[in-house]
Simulated assay, not measured.
Amino acid sequence: MGSRDVTPVKLGVLHDEYQQSAEWLKSQTKHRPQVAIICGSGLGMLADALKCQDSFPYADIPGFPQSTVQGHAGRLVFGELKGKTCVCMQGRFHMYEGHSLGKTTFPVRVFKLLGVETLIVTNAAGSVADGLRPGDIMLIKDHVNFPGLVGLNPLSGPNDDKFGPRFPAMSGCYDKGLRSLALDIAKQMGVADLMREGVYAMVGGPTFETIAEARLLHRLGVDAVGMSTAPEVVIATHCGLRVFGLSLITNKVVKSYEDPDSVDHQGVLEVGRQRSHTLQQLVTQLVARMEINNNIGGSRDNTL
């Protein structure tokens, strides 16, 4: 038999790949972000509030995958927001698009290398809790990462000690102080009746839940369900970022066989459009009032 060229299977993403993306972005913009915002379905308008923008299509950034979902513009936007430098993802990546979890969460570690301290994650989610209605905003206090529970975890494979420990604790991964601040801001905005705290569950998608699955989630104490967020929060927690998460409730998850309602992606996007101004105001005020450890505008070397 002739010799065969056996290519080893690549596990995860190499540290140099994150570094390459970060260095490319540093060479293209003078912005050095302190806050990163990941926009969920229909929520890309959060980037519109940024001043002095530099934007880059994902296709132009070394190492970045591309978003394929309607409602996700697929670009990275840098800019100033209330005196703080931010970077905003207009569109995220999902497992159901065929991306590996390493690629799904790739931007979060790039943000860490750019100097980001705080990650804001937003998503569109279905209400499982009886008291949550479409148009409500749920501050995420905890999550159930169903893919992670069966071994689909972005930290699987060799640990990158330059980012964090082998076994990171996930209790308290959503910052309590930022949730409290967001509730105060909502009261001042007069939208406190739209807000509540709750538990988010991630399922793999792209199918919406069956009635039996919805009933299971309800019995487990889940308040809202979606197809993203948990992997990004795992990576953010692993590398020491402070995390604030919110879900815009865009639909009611059907839990009864007699309920004629159903959900579709267009309806999800429409609720996002209806609540866009409120969400933009809330996030803008949160960024304005949150404390940042680093000096604003100072040069920082975040090479890991």
Rank of each mutant, 00 (worst) to 15 (best):
D161A: 13
L155F: 14
M189Q: 14
T303L: 15
Q53F: 02
A124H: 01
V199E: 00
E258C: 05
A73R: 13
P260T: 04
M227S: 02
G148H: 08
R133A: 14
V263D: 00
A186I: 06
F93P: 06
Q53K: 13
A49G: 08
T7N: 09
A47C: 05
L246D: 00
V116M: 12
V234K: 04
G83A: 12
K141Y: 00
D16L: 12
I211P: 03
L269S: 03
G297Y: 15
P57V: 07
N295P: 14
M1E: 13
Y96L: 06
G198I: 02
G297L: 15
L279A: 04
Y96A: 04
V150T: 15
S276I: 06
L14K: 13
L279F: 03
G44W: 05
F208C: 00
L183T: 00
V203F: 07
S171F: 05
D175Y: 02
L282A: 09
P154D: 10
G240Q: 12
D130Q: 13
H218N: 09
G79H: 08
G83Y: 10
I37Q: 05
R273G: 09
D5A: 15
Q66W: 07
A214M: 09
G102C: 09
I120A: 05
S156F: 13
R273I: 02
A22S: 05
P57C: 12
L183M: 09
G63C: 10
K187N: 08
